[in-house]
Amino acid sequence: MKCKDFLPLIDTYVDGEFDELESDELEMHLSACPECRKKVDSQINWKRSFKQCLEGETAPVDLRASILGQILTPQTEQQDEDENVLPLREKVATKKGAIAGLSIAAIALLSFYAVPKFVTVAPAASDTEPVVEQAIDWHTGNFPIEVTGPESDRIENWFVDKVAFPIHLPAFKDANLLGARLANLKERRAAYVAYDIDGTRLSVMLFNGDGLLVDTENIKNIKGRDIALINQNGYTVALLQNGGVTYSLTSDISEEKMTELLSSSFSAPE
């Protein structure tokens, strides 16, 4: 075999499409021809680099949730349970089958899948969790306020015809209610509310959390309520469900401080 015969076969050889006998023949040429060897190596490098460059794009968490939500049968019996809060940990623990653990009931705001790959948004992947990311964006963005505090009634009323869920603002100890505005978390319409606690800003967002996935590792049980606590980019973000609405709280306070804040402001679910 000569180089001119070998060269047109490089791609097919590198793609591993030749059978053993054929490969032997090609390799005989290769072992005698450093020029062709170099070209083969180069093609192998190309293929590998191409793959490295493009792989690692993972499907967004909410896309996954949306697809699964449309495919999998809702667990209707969960609707009979307490609507205020889903004791997530218990549910996951009691369900053994892969599908049995799915809770995509309309009211299940923090949905969990018992199939481990879906339940767990690995710490690295949680960077891509758009709700947390965007909650932080809203927190740091310093967007203009559309309705000012400090009266919470006024803000709750302002939202009445603007969002499709009831707005009940939590009462934080020693917090000054600065104001609120309309916002969105990805495609979810959200109410953004800003507080000031001893000079530290606290952002609270209320939204419909249907299909939202949270890493089980992040779940803490605080006063009988399951709350996801996530630390990202120096911010602590808490996600919880109250009265059928999902709340995100974002601030640059410690997890302990956030826990303290949560336990004093959200009463235990009945």
């Binding site: 794009e57 499907a59 697809i67 999998l72 049968t73 892969a98 599908i99 199939v115």
Partner: peptide, 24 residues
């Protein structure tokens, strides 16, 4: 219901793991 659940389970096991590859 049983059949549907079986189908869902198989889909989750066989098809869903390829979602990242499809997305990329």
């Amino acid at each position: 219901d049983e059949a549907r659940k079986e189908l869902e389970k198989a889909f989750v096991e066989e098809a869903v793991p390829h979602m990242d590859a499809l997305y990329a």
